[in-house]
Every structure is written in structure tokens, then in C-alpha cells.
Design a protein around this nucleic acid. Structure first.
Lengths: 228, 228
DNA sequence: CGGAAATTTGAGCAATTTCAACATGGGTGG
DNA sequence: CCACCCATGTTGAAATTGCTCAAATTTCCG
């Protein structure tokens, strides 16, 4: 399923730049990164499943991974979509029960750097900068999640979609005047907790807000109303 | 609005036992607690409003505080209800923008211990145990929030309510065979993002699940199915 | 004992989900 | 190179379900 790839064959330079390591010296970074292994995953590979013991901490070097739950009825709820530069599992590390609470599936061929969980705990204990970075990350994550929960309950599907597109555009540094949807429509629908049908029907309505989606091409003309 | 009360007049002993301080020596705790002031708030007092600068970190000694958002249309969405022993603002401390992202209102006369924000940052930097406790707390909080988001989108109001009652009972150490609702029904409805009407109509349906609510009295007969 | 707030109940409505059918599109094998 | 297949996306129509509005009750407090 996952193929091991020698670290040397991949440029891991940018991993040093993720927020988790900011504030550390180059030497410290090198030392820490030495504990990471790089794996290559194919689309549809499973990174881990709910209930599995938390063994590693992940940094996505390239590709996409979706985190999701499976409800009793079998419907998937996408919790989050992670892309290159994102980390996976920072939240769960210090939790009480050492088990994953979501499934994680690779949705686009990816290269992922993995670190033993204990390593991160040790790093947090040893390097205060790492602790601080983790706190900052968790804090930010919590805030984002809160905002999202609020949106989810108070906004219409059209508003949610508009917000998602704007945020995605900004977060990925895309050109607001024209970019290609980085995710499949079904995935986005799942991410926004709406049916694909509702998603589809929302697209035309976006025009009134100055957002135009044709096929996988998006343009945000009237980007005057960026949330926060 | 809020009256200052001398620390000496209140028993702050149990504050030492909150998870944030676990792992510290008694001396360290005493030292840290010296920076806290105790205030008394009345029902409906405002602790802070969205947009206010984050100045303090709070520990509820007694009472209840609700965190909520106000949507454009004026409807309130209760984000969380905090009770004695809970902390407020751990999440927001290390965020980028130093402003509250929710309103906080006292919903039951409360005594609240407040610490300057900088103090907590310093404490986290100085005492690794505090960092670890914070990480643990944020981690737990994040997990809970994720679970909740999943529930919110996949469960019926009846299921949500059942889950809420069971969790509340457990979290507050109440007797499953009979306890008094610790919150008003309107508040719970708001917390679960449903209208008071829907909440009300859900009550009778709980009987089929072995949960009986009469007035403010609750009993969870068939408590066989506790979600972890 | 009022009066206000909280809770319940009824009825109709609006909006999303479901179910079903159809269109698109890329990739594969012949 | 073309036909076919499967995954993805779109559209239509019916069904469900929580919400809004309104009014009746109950509860809470001063």
C-alpha cells in the first residue's frame, strides 16, 4: 500500500519551514528531522483508521489527505482536507486515549513525512519553542473550528460555499480572478456537510455574489467581502 | 457590574486542583495563584464581548458562564457552557489576533478567578508542566469539538439531546437515576443549535430511549449506551 | 397577586435531503 | 481510433423535517 522512499531522494527542505519548527536553529531542525521517514502513498490509500493507536505524527510534503468520520448509516462526513505543508495529528497527540478519532485517507498521490509520536512528545518537552508552536497551532485550529461550527449552523449552503471558495483561494494563494478547484465537488460538498445535489444547485446562485464557477474553473470577481 | 472580592474571603483551594496546575509543586501553585484576583459576577453580567482584547485568563470557581456568538440576524448561538472548575480562554491565548472571538455572559451568579494573560504565557514558558497541561487541555478540547461537529451534522435533534443529557450527567457527576437539569431548556436548545420548539418536541421522544424528562427532573434509566 | 419570562403545542412553510434519471468525461481494452 | 464503463456531476420531483409564527400554559419572582 505505502511504499517507503529514501529521504535522500526527496527534497525535505520545506518541511523545516512549517510553523511547528519555527524558532528553532538549523541544527535543531536537522536533528529533529532525522527522525522522520518519508513515505509515498497512492490515492485511496488509508493513512490510519478510527480506533487505530496513534503511532505517528505526519507532515504532508505533497498531495492531499482527507480526514473523515463514518456514521452508523455509512455516510461519510469529511472533517477536514489537508494539503502540502499541513500536519496531521497534532491535535490528538496529547489526548488521553491514544487512539485516532477519525479515518484518514489519501485522496491524491502524496508524499508524507512521518515521525514517531513519542518523538514529538519528547521534542515538545525538550524544546520550549516546539511547545509554543504546538500551542499556537492548536489554538489557531480550535479557533477555526469554532468559527466553522458557528457558520455551519447559521449560514445557508450558498453562503457556506462562497466562504469556502474564498478561504480556499486565500489559503492556497490562488488567483481570485481565475483558478482551478483544488478539490472534487463531491469532496467539498462532504466537507461542508451538504449533499452533492445541494452543492450543485448552489453553484448558479453564487453568481449573484460575484462568484462564477464553470466546470472546475472558479473566479471571485467581487472579492470585496472577505471574512476576517 | 463586577464586584472585586478579596481573595482571602474565598476558598481558592480547589483552583489548585484544576488540570492546568497538575504536576506543579505546592510552592509553584501558590506562587502562580498569587497573580489571580477573584471577582464576583451577577447573572447577565458580561465577562467580555467579541472583539474585546484578550486581557485575562479565567477560572470559574462557582456559577455558570455561556460563550456565544451573535449572528447578523440577531439569533444567538451558544458555543459552550462553562461551569465551576472550567477555564475560559485557554484556546485564545496563543492565537494570532489578540481579540476574543465570542461573547461571554454570566448566566448564574459566579465567582471567577482572573489571571493576566501575560502571566499565563510566562507560566507556560517557565513551567514546562504548564505547557504540557495546556497542550493536553487544548487537545482534549479540540477532540471534543470535532466529535461535536460530527454529531451536529449527522444526528437528529432527539439523538443530540440524548447525548447531551448523558454527557452532562457524567461530566457533572450527577445521579443518572434522577437529577435536576443544571441549565435552562432554552439554553440547552441554543447549545444544541435547535429551536426551543424542536427541543420541547424532542423531550417526549426520549422516552423510547429510556430517558425521562419531567419539568426539570431527568432520569436516564437505560444508560446502557453511553457514547465513550 | 400580577407581570414577565420560559415552556409547550398547533399549523403551515421553506429548504434540504432523497430517490431517480440523465449527462459528462476520462480511461481502458479491443 | 472507437466503443464502453465507471466515476462524477447535474437536474427534476417528491418527501421529510426542522423552523417560524401564534397562542395557550406554566413557572418564576418581586
Amino acid at each position: 500500500m505505502a511504499q517507503r522512499v529514501l529521504s535522500d531522494t526527496i527534497n525535505t527542505g520545506f518541511v523545516k519551514n512549517i510553523s511547528l519548527f519555527s524558532g528553532l536553529s538549523e541544527e535543531e531542525k536537522d536533528l529533529l528531522l532525522r527522525n522522520g521517514s518519508i513515505y509515498f502513498y497512492n490515492r485511496k490509500d488509508t493513512l490510519f483508521r478510527r480506533g487505530d493507536p496513534v503511532t505517528h505524527f505526519y507532515v504532508i510534503c505533497s498531495g492531499q489527505v482527507k480526514l473523515f468520520h463514518q456514521t452508523a448509516e455509512g455516510c461519510d462526513v469529511t472533517t477536514d482536507i489537508r494539503i502540502a505543508g499541513d500536519t496531521i495529528c497534532t491535535t490528538g497527540i496529547f489526548a488521553l486515549h491514544p487512539h485516532h478519532h477519525t479515518h484518514a485517507e489519501v485522496i491524491k498521490d502524496s508524499t508524507i513525512m512521518e515521525f514517531p509520536m513519542q518523538w514529538l512528545k519528547d521534542a515538545a518537552r525538550a524544546h520550549n519553542a516546539v511547545s509554543m508552536n504546538l500551542l499556537s497551532a492548536l489554538s489557531r485550529h480550535g479557533h477555526r473550528q469554532t468559527m466553522e461550527m458557528e457558520n455551519q449552523t447559521c449560514m445557508t449552503p450558498v453562503q457556506l460555499l462562497a466562504g469556502f471558495l474564498q478561504q480556499t483561494c486565500r489559503a492556497q494563494g490562488l488567483n481570485p480572478h481565475g483558478f482551478t478547484l483544488p478539490f472534487s465537488k463531491t469532496l467539498i460538498a462532504s466537507r461542508l456537510s451538504m449533499s452533492p445535489e445541494t452543492f450543485s444547485r448552489a453553484l448558479p446562485k453564487l453568481k449573484e455574489m460575484g462568484i462564477n464557477v464553470t466546470g472546475t474553473h472558479v473566479s471571485l470577481y467581487g472579492s470585496q467581502e472577505m471574512k476576517h
